[in-house]
Design a protein around this nucleic acid. Structure first.
Length: 266
DNA sequence: TACGTAACAATGGCTGTT
DNA sequence: AACAGCCATTGTTACGTA
């Protein structure tokens, strides 16, 4: 809360901040405080700058304050005050001020709708989801073929022992994080000829396992008398086609890399 | 049919339940 | 004591919904 107030003071020194209690604050300011700064040329750019600052502060407000505090913010007491500015800019300033007021009114409407009583979150769906998960787990046929291992899983199996011996005190979850981190950095190593195994090789292993899964799935379906799942199969085919497309694009990108300078000169 | 999301693949240690 | 489930990750598959 204090951080928010500090930022409000810094960005909007004309705003008076008053605590009502530990969670509610009352803000009082007039729209014309911005216009008081005679050094500012009042154009749309500056207006946008102030607006972005204001929105930034609003976001902080949402983080630090309760909904009620946000509501209080928009009970703004606008005071009429003489604006010391050039006559030629006065009309534009009033117009921009109107825009700003409209913005605040729209924002207030938004906040009002946000604050409208919403139905209490029902815990029942969550329980149903959990139950559904358990039911689905129970329904899994032990004779059904195991799902194919992904490239990451192959990499995980390959690196697990190395990381465990290297960091014997680390918990397994932490080791998993390390392996995942190294997996993300792996593409950089693809270009190194000396690298024993590249990411592509793990993807190849995964591709082989997918083929294994397809064959076992067909066999399983013929043995159990179940009709092939058209939807799942179609999706799998689509996924495979999508992957091939991505690989093609990547290959194309590699080829284009040598012409990158030409592309950049559009 | 497209999209979103849960489940699952591997792994070992830990925790909770029976 | 034995067993089940969770954690942590990425990538793929299965399934439900609009």
């Amino acid at each position: 809360m204090n951080k928010f107030v500090d930022i409000i003071h810094q960005d909007f020194p004309s705003i008076k901040v008053q605590y009502i209690n530990s969670t509610l604050i009352d803000l009082e300011f007039d729209f014309e405080f911005i216009l008081q700064d005679s050094t500012v040329t009042w154009d749309l750019y500056i207006w946008k700058c102030y607006l972005s600052k204001f929105i930034e502060s609003l976001i902080l407000l949402i983080i630090y304050c309760s909904k009620q505090a946000i509501y209080n913010l928009f009970y703004i007491k606008s005071q009429s005050r003489d604006v010391r500015c050039n006559n030629e800019n006065q009309h534009k300033q009033k117009k921009d001020q109107g825009k700003f007021q409209n913005f605040l009114l729209q924002l207030k409407a938004l906040i009002d709708s946000f604050l409208a009583p919403s139905p209490e979150p029902e815990e029942q769906p969550k329980a149903q989801v959990t139950k559904a998960k358990k039911q689905k787990k129970k329904q899994k046929d032990p004779l059904a073929p195991k799902m194919p291992k992904s490239a990451f899983i192959f990499y995980f199996q390959d690196k697990k022992d190395k990381f465990q011996s290297q960091y014997p005190d680390l918990q397994f979850q932490e080791i998993t994080k390390l392996i995942a981190s190294e997996w993300k950095d792996l593409p950089k190593e693809i270009q190194q000829v000396s690298q024993p195994k590249t990411k592509q090789q793990y993807h190849n292993s995964a591709e082989q396992d997918r083929n294994r899964y397809s064959q076992e799935q067909e066999l399983y379906q013929s043995q159990t008398g179940k009709q092939p799942n058209g939807k799942g199969q179609a999706k799998a085919n689509k996924s495979s086609a999508k992957k091939e497309k991505i690989i093609k694009i990547l290959d194309q990108d590699e080829e284009n890399d040598s012409f990158g300078a030409d592309i950049g000169q559009d």
